[in-house]
Design a protein around this nucleic acid. Structure first.
Length: 419
RNA sequence: GUGGGCGUAGUGUAGUUGGUUAACACGUCAGGUUGUGGCCCUGAAGAUCGCGGGUUCAAAUCCCGUCGCUCACCCCA
């Protein structure tokens, strides 16, 4: 039945049955972060809009059409967080983290909001696990983030993934490349789509990842950024590749890889599953060497990634990745009368304090009904308390798997269950 | 934002050349005598057929709108 009010478009309830997937992914991510000594950070769900306009970029889709923007009662212009990196950098500055040993390694697991048209693997509220290594300009930092992302998928059991790697240069060489790109497109405008015609001026890098069929020929012949990198960027890129190579992480250099956020410099990367579909990317990231200063901090390099938890789970399900077995209810206490029920309550309480999970049945329901209930909850044991047991301060303990049962003193239940 | 498909009990489905009490499975609850599960049997509850409007003597079945889901585009996680 559809209720009058339902979850807003593009949002979803994550029901109890789904939670094991989420727990598994979160636990794996957190454990991995621990090994690399990344510490968790939580930032507010909403921020000053300016934070995103300034960093993500005014011409990007995220800012232009996907942000949830609103004014609060004090006329503050706020935005629901559309991505995770800028807020973390804001916090880095605000809390003087440059005074800590660099780089500062941070991770987050948090909801992200984008006003997109929903489809499989794409939501208006989704969740990202992301990390940021701030304060390290070296190529090894890039490689470290790539390794974490790759190991995460590996540990979760995802297969068939492709790591795409590219460099989009820096303030030094990017203008030169963009000029070359514009020159190349100058006499081909009649052969590309309308979007691309506009991109030539507004956002030329994005020309490269246009998926329109009519534009593919032109893209194929376009100059590659890797041929235009300045010495420093070229050097950095080959070092990153070298590290990734040394770690044994398979990857391809994809000169057409461009990310949709303006703050990236040099290294950009994305991981894609074999199975094509609306959502081709499970995770992506890159370096952002000017983001901190754009926000008023002292010039500080940074690198990080974000990966979508919904998409990870989607791909795990597609690949039939097994989940660690769920925990089982240890004891269901069946009680035959109101008096027995009080007794049962006390027993369950004692068991739980001893680390055993326990539930008590409804004494107004028949023993048979309670037993059925125990069975459908998949309890390991049913502990039956009736008049006989009350008199002798004992319980009839039945192992549901094989139907065997014995009467044990009330104090021995825990030991029997744990055995 | 653009285009295509879809929308029936908690879940999965049947029912559409419009015609009396909308069907089935699973699930839920109860019962199959005397203190006991899983299988089996019986029964019950549970759907204003997404919502609103229209056509008609009559609509779950036709038309329009709307909301939502879904696929593709766009973009991304």
């Amino acid at each position: 039945m559809t209720p009058d009010i339902q979850a807003p478009r593009g949002t979803q309830d994550i029901l109890p049955d789904e939670q094991p997937w989420w727990d598994y992914v979160r636990d794996t991510a957190e454990r991995l972060c621990g090994k690399f000594r990344y510490a968790q950070i939580d930032t507010p769900m909403f921020e000053d809009v300016a934070l995103f306009k300034r960093t993500v970029g005014d011409t990007t889709d995220i800012v232009q059409k996907e942000m949830y923007v609103f004014k609060d009662r004090g006329d503050q212009e706020l935005a629901l967080r559309p991505e995770g990196t800028a807020p973390v950098c804001r916090a880095y500055i605000e809390h003087g983290m440059h005074n800590q040993p660099q780089p500062v390694r941070l991770f987050y697991i948090t909801p992200i909001f984008r006003y997109d048209r929903p489809q499989a693997g794409r939501f208006r509220q989704h969740h990202q696990f992301g990390i940021e290594a701030i304060g390290d300009a070296s190529a090894s930092a890039d490689a470290e983030t790539i390794e974490i992302l790759w190991r995460l998928y590996e540990e979760l059991g995802l297969t068939g993934l492709t790591l795409n790697l590219n460099s989009i240069g820096d303030a030094d060489c990017r203008p030169r490349y963009l000029e070359a790109l514009r020159d190349y497109y100058a006499d081909k405008l009649d052969r590309v789509c309308r979007d691309c015609q506009a991109r030539v001026e507004r956002n030329p890098l994005r020309l490269l990842d246009c998926k329109n069929a009519e534009c593919q020929d032109v893209i194929a012949g376009a100059p590659a950024f890797t041929d235009y990198l300045c010495d420093a960027c070229g050097d950095h890129f080959s070092q990153v590749s070298g590290y990734v190579e040394a770690l044994g992480i398979p990857h391809v250099v994809n000169p057409r890889l461009v990310r949709g956020l303006d703050y990236y410099t040099r290294t950009v990367y994305e991981v894609q599953p074999e199975e094509e579909g609306g959502q081709s990317t499970v995770g992506g990231g890159g370096r952002y060497d000017h983001l901190i200063e754009q926000l008023g901090g002292r010039p500080t390099p940074g690198v990080g990634f974000a990966t979508g938890i919904e998409r990870i789970i989607l791909n795990m399900k597609r690949q039939d990745v097994p989940l660690p077995s769920a925990s089982q209810l240890d004891v269901f206490v069946v009680c035959a009368s109101a008096a027995a029920r009080v007794f049962a309550f006390k027993l369950a309480s004692d068991l739980r304090r001893g680390g055993i999970s326990a539930l008590v049945g409804d004494s107004t329901r028949s023993l048979k009904a309670q037993m059925r209930h125990a069975s459908s909850l998949d309890a390991a044991y049913a502990a039956i308390i009736g008049d006989r047991e009350l008199e002798s301060a004992s319980v009839t303990l039945k192992r549901l798997a094989d139907g065997s049962q014995e009467t044990v003193p009330i104090g021995d239940v825990a030991a029997h269950v744990q055995a």
